[in-house]
């Protein structure tokens, strides 16, 4: 066990523990905050695995943006403060399938790698990853930019019910949408 192993073990334990709390806690907001802990521990894992750029992008995008968006969604859907009892379905099938998937993958990977060691490769700095992305992976990169644009447009269209309504459809559509919208804008 080298220092890297000890760090990986500790960060992995933190990540899995926080993950357990994310899927079991009764408090909506706390689930988001445990998710921050889990993602932060994973960013530490990436750093130990010499993936610098991925670690910082993880902190920026996941911890910075995605969790903030999720917390905004918790607020906008008027989640109650404190514990709520109706967050869960009765879930033996969920435990069975989730536990089966997790333990099955664990057995598979442990069997594949045993207790072998590898040397860490050269660090994935922004310079090296940038060379790779803009030389070998340019086409997927550009496709991703188109995908981001379409996701942006899709989110806007979804959140505006007045787009895509059939022409003259105020009578055809239920009246309450028409009622809600001006109220929301005022």
């Amino acid at each position: 066990m080298t220092g890297a192993d000890v760090l990986l073990l500790a960060l992995g334990a933190v990540a899995v523990g926080a993950g357990v709390l994310v899927v079991t806690t009764k408090h909506l907001v706390r689930a988001g905050l445990y998710l921050v802990v889990c993602l932060g521990a994973l960013a530490g894992d990436f750093l130990v695995l010499s993936a610098e750029l991925v670690a910082w992008v993880q902190v920026l995008i996941y911890v910075g943006a995605v969790v903030v968006l999720l917390l905004f969604a918790v607020m906008l859907t008027r989640a109650p403060i404190g514990a709520s009892d109706d967050l869960d379905r009765p879930g033996w099938p969920a435990a069975l399938i989730g536990g089966g998937a997790g333990l099955g993958l664990t057995v598979l990977l442990v069997d594949a790698y045993r207790w072998s060691t590898v040397e860490l490769p050269t660090a994935g700095t922004a310079e090296r990853l940038g060379e790779q992305i803009f030389q070998s992976w340019v086409l997927p990169f550009e496709v991703l930019s188109v995908l981001l644009l379409s996701a942006l447009v899709g989110a806007i269209v979804l959140s505006r019910p007045d787009i895509g309504r059939p022409p003259g459809g105020d009578a055809a559509r239920p009246a309450d949408l028409v009622d809600v919208e001006p109220g929301g804008r005022r």
């Binding site: 990540a15 899927v23 967050l87 379905r89």
Partner: peptide, 15 residues
Amino acid sequence: ALLFGLGVYGVLRRR
């Protein structure tokens, strides 16, 4: 692997 299992469990369990 454990995190993936937890994610599957959460998707199926949470309402």
